[in-house]
Computed example of a mutant assay.
Amino acid sequence: MAEAEIPEDHPRHDSLVTRHRIEAGVEKGITSRQGLIAQGRGEAFDYLLGERTLPSADAAARAAAAHLLLADHPVVSVNGNAAALVPGELVALADAVGADLEVNLFNRTEERMRAIVDHLLDHGASEVKGLAADARLPNLTHERAKVDADGIADADVVLVPLEDGDRAAALADLGKAEIVIDLNPMSRSVQVADVPIVDNILRAIPNITAHAHELAHAERAELERIVGAFDAAATLDDAERAIRDGDLS
């Protein structure tokens, strides 16, 4: 069944759409087979969350938008699953906050890199970084260490959806403000993030964009107030509580 053929009133509509996009991503060479496993793990957490955006996750998305709008050089990092799931939405977010898009992969090949760059260009991006790989993040020995000197290496705020924990820690060690989207509130990635967003990327990216549009003309002092008032630990505690105590009936 193609994505367009999934009835919108199907009780598992969003889940089926997500699976279809990941499967199509593998066929296009965008998503790795390991990405299928990661997607299944995330879907399990989303089910426990009730497949909804918690108020704390919405507040985190608003703080993320404020961070990105305040940044001198924001960058949205893109991996294979993110590119397969929300390519147009990532482009829209980058446009809304004036951010660069940069592809960064653990299972990196030149073919996958080019496929994802082309995929984002096909969805409206004017430029996508990541192919130059002329800088490295310190203390990482795998392919995620490769970044563009005028992209992630130079960024002051980085949004890293569906991230690996060790690179999240490496970015944090460099003093970059880090926004992480992850459905597991206990993952290493969100634990080191300045703004952890425990939500499905299909909901989180459009939500950040909506907040960015709402805050586009806000005074700098208001954006700084939003950033300063955000409590990362309380956000993670709320998500974990929702997962452990949620009513699945």
Score class of each variant (00 low, 15 high):
Q34Y: 02
D118Y: 05
L171G: 02
A61G: 11
T18A: 06
E102D: 06
L215E: 08
D182R: 06
A133K: 10
G29D: 02
D9I: 04
P138W: 06
I152W: 11
V198Q: 08
V17W: 01
I22C: 08
A149T: 07
A172W: 02
H73F: 09
V117R: 10
I226G: 13
G25C: 11
G42C: 10
L85C: 05
T18W: 01
R167M: 15
A59D: 14
G246I: 08
V158I: 14
G88S: 13
G124Q: 06
E178V: 15
A221C: 03
A218G: 04
P7C: 00
G165A: 12
G40A: 15
T209C: 03
K176N: 11
L223N: 13
A66C: 10
G50M: 12
G50E: 09
A221S: 12
T235C: 05
L121R: 13
H10W: 00
D95E: 15
E214I: 03
L121S: 15
G80E: 01
A2H: 08
A204S: 09
A125H: 13
H217F: 02
V147R: 11
A135C: 07
A168I: 04
L162N: 07
M186R: 14
G88P: 02
L36K: 09
E214C: 02
R112I: 01
